[in-house]
Amino acid sequence: MGIRNESRVNGFFLSGLTDQPELQLPLFFLFLGIYIVTVVGNLGMISTIVLSSQLHIPMYYFLSSLSFIDFCYSSVIIPKTLAMILSRDKYISYSGCMSQFFFFCMFAVCECYMLAAMAYDRYVAICRPLLYNVIMSPRVCSLLVAGVFSVGLFFAMLFDGCLIPLDYCGPNIIKHYFCDIMPLIKLSCSSTYIDEILIYVVGGFNMVTPSVTIVTSYAFIISSILRIQSKEGRAKTFNTCGSHLTAVLIFYGSLISTYLKPAASSSAIQEKVTSVFYTMMIPMLNPLIYSLRNKEVQNAVKKLLKRNPSS
């Protein structure tokens, strides 16, 4: 990610979530609490899955990968936001800004496709149970996860490649609390028509493709659930998918309301509030959703605590 010599600014100033001084300290403690819960929840989920042999199945392999993505995803945004609030220094260098957006984009795209991979895993488990171990072999699961990270890396490079050639002549105040693509494009003094078309086309592709995979998978899953005779069987089967559906609805709902709508349809404050959901709240909520609704994870945690009472 090289820096163009023609860029007339060496860095940017982030406007943050609010300019009101009395809200800075409450926001700092709120975001600090969110980040602590996010780190403990996601690293705890990864540790539980790694240390519990009963969780060494594809479903939890994907879940541990999702937890890793959420941990990295939030770490790209929240520490810089906390430092900015605490020091009141809202400056970020040009290279720092491009790097922050690169990793934010990479892990956001990874989350989209990881949720799709998890939906496919649930489809195979419920609709093709006899072939599950064959279809979702360790090699296939590893290839799916590697594919998710490869797609994230590719699109992050593509989007970052749209931003780096642009000239920024000033003002250099980004009306956001992190370096996102739309606020950066609005600051450019270059022609951004092609970039905006690419953003909507590629961004739409990255939301529609996983969404279609998820919707199709759950259409088959619901059809299979309805054919189950016993109420207990239907409830148990649906509970295995409930956590994933909850995570999908929250994540995609906040993304679509931010990126796939006309730029003039909402204010900068509304965009900031919406973006808090997918940059801070979702990485925190995912491990809570999956642990609170999943008896296997709860039992694994209890066994680990009994094995290591000092923890």
Rank of each mutant, 00 (worst) to 15 (best):
I256N: 04
F159N: 03
S142Q: 10
N239M: 12
M284E: 02
V202Y: 09
S191W: 01
M106S: 13
P21R: 00
N239H: 04
S230P: 01
L249C: 09
N286H: 09
R88F: 10
L153R: 02
L166N: 00
F104V: 09
K90S: 15
M45V: 12
I69Q: 03
C127H: 02
L249Y: 01
F62T: 03
C162K: 00
E111C: 12
R293Y: 09
S64K: 13
F238D: 01
I174E: 05
E22L: 11
D19M: 07
F178W: 09
C189F: 05
I222L: 13
S142A: 15
G33L: 10
S7Y: 02
L166F: 06
V37P: 00
D160F: 00
M59E: 13
F28W: 05
K306T: 11
E111H: 08
C141L: 04
V148G: 06
D121S: 14
S95A: 14
K295R: 11
L305V: 06
F155S: 00
R293M: 14
E22Y: 13
S291L: 08
I194N: 07
H176V: 01
L304I: 06
R4N: 10
S87R: 12
S64I: 10
C112A: 10
V140D: 00
Y73A: 05
I135V: 15
I214E: 00
Q20C: 07
M114T: 12
C72L: 14
C127G: 09
T258I: 14
T18P: 01
A263N: 11
S52C: 10
Y177W: 14
V37S: 03
C179I: 08
T258S: 11
I174Q: 02
H56M: 07
L288M: 13
V201N: 04
K272C: 12
E111S: 11
T240Q: 10
T258R: 01
M106A: 09
I181C: 08
V215W: 08
R234A: 04
T279S: 11
F155R: 01
Q54K: 13
M157F: 15
E232S: 13
A300S: 15
Q298K: 14
P309D: 02
Y218I: 04
G242M: 08
N42D: 02
Y94S: 07
L187Y: 05
G152N: 04
T216Y: 12
K295A: 14
Y290H: 15
A268E: 11
M182E: 12
Y73R: 13
I222V: 14
T274Q: 15
T246W: 06
I269T: 12
G203W: 07
F31K: 06
P183H: 07
V201D: 04
D121G: 08
I194V: 12
V212Y: 05
Y91P: 02
Y35Q: 15
C112N: 15
S74R: 01
T258A: 12
G44M: 13
I126E: 02
L255K: 04
S266E: 10
Q298H: 05
Y200D: 06
